[in-house]
Design a protein around this nucleic acid. Structure first.
Lengths: 159, 159
DNA sequence: CTATTTTGGTTTCTTAACGCAACCATATTG
DNA sequence: CAATATGGTTGCGTTAAGAAACCAAAATAG
């Protein structure tokens, strides 16, 4: 049956992974953030099979992460652009990038360094913080008990 | 051939996805952050098939996201605990959680609210910021050209 | 000490997803 | 009209996921 789904899970991480948790979706979103918009460009830059790309783009559009825009005179060309929901994955992608750079350094030793277009400043490491700005690790947080109990296990036991 | 790998990609997002980019790994890490340590507990709380769980745990241990700890008298019991590398996925998980809560609200309307154990404060939304603290969107950043060109497309063309 | 349960797996089998390559239709270019 | 670019779809073989059964060692119950 492959691929369990978690649409009804009370865990938002599980629900998020439903939409961008497969091998390709997040890379497509990343590529879109780099500016790629065309089917063929995604295909060539990612080296993804066309049918898979087609499937993922459709799904991302269905999930409103991307939107399909007709361009050109007679609508024969489309572009896939990030929606606000898609652009909102920026912190996820950056967090993942920083984790990758820290723990699996590039074999070429040159991590991609994004910078603020305006000031040229580098990006600060992503951190989990309280409202007050205090940095938190996993061990610093707790979860109300009754919520913890059904965090991500309910989707399975009831289905 | 299924599942392309990106070990040699110069894109750290792609490399990160190699380790935690499948359907289960990040959920396992999440569950570990909730305090789960035992094989059977992971299995029951996630509803994952045992062979898949076994495979993922092994892989996460291989990738040093988890470490396997012998507990009990005669070493018949193991625990899987997060390493520092694993705990360092906290920002990724939180970013994903916040995205899920924002764009795919819980069907039960009760997003899990993590709080600082010490102060009781809620977690601030994750944001990409410059060193100076300025919040950045996708559109605010740029990437040096020569780096962008080979961001995530090289792993395929050469392999 | 034996029977049962817990724990941490492995094996088998079916089904779904992936990847490749070929094919296709429309629109542009020459 | 031929060639090419674009955005797909179709077929087919391979691989990975999922369910359930099986297994062995250790803990627990009686």
């Amino acid at each position: 049956m492959a691929r369990k789904r978690f649409d009804d899970s009370n865990c938002s991480v599980a629900r998020a992974l439903n939409e961008v948790g497969d091998w390709w979706s997040l890379l497509i979103v990343l590529q879109a953030m780099y500016g790629t918009r065309r089917f063929v460009d995604f295909q060539q830059e990612l080296g993804i099979a066309r049918n898979i790309l087609c499937d993922r783009l459709t799904r991302l559009v269905d999930n409103q992460v991307l939107r399909k825009v007709e361009v050109g005179e007679h609508g024969s060309r489309q572009e896939y652009r990030l929606t606000e929901k898609g652009r909102d994955l920026f912190p996820v992608v950056i967090a993942l990038r920083q984790w990758g750079d820290k723990w699996n350094p590039s074999p070429e030793g040159v991590p991609l360094n994004l910078r603020d277009r305006e000031t040229g400043q580098a990006i600060r490491p992503m951190a989990v913080q309280t409202e007050g700005g205090k940095k938190l690790t996993v061990r610093d947080v707790y979860m109300p008990e009754e919520e913890a109990a059904e965090s991500s296990g309910d989707g399975q036991k009831t289905g």
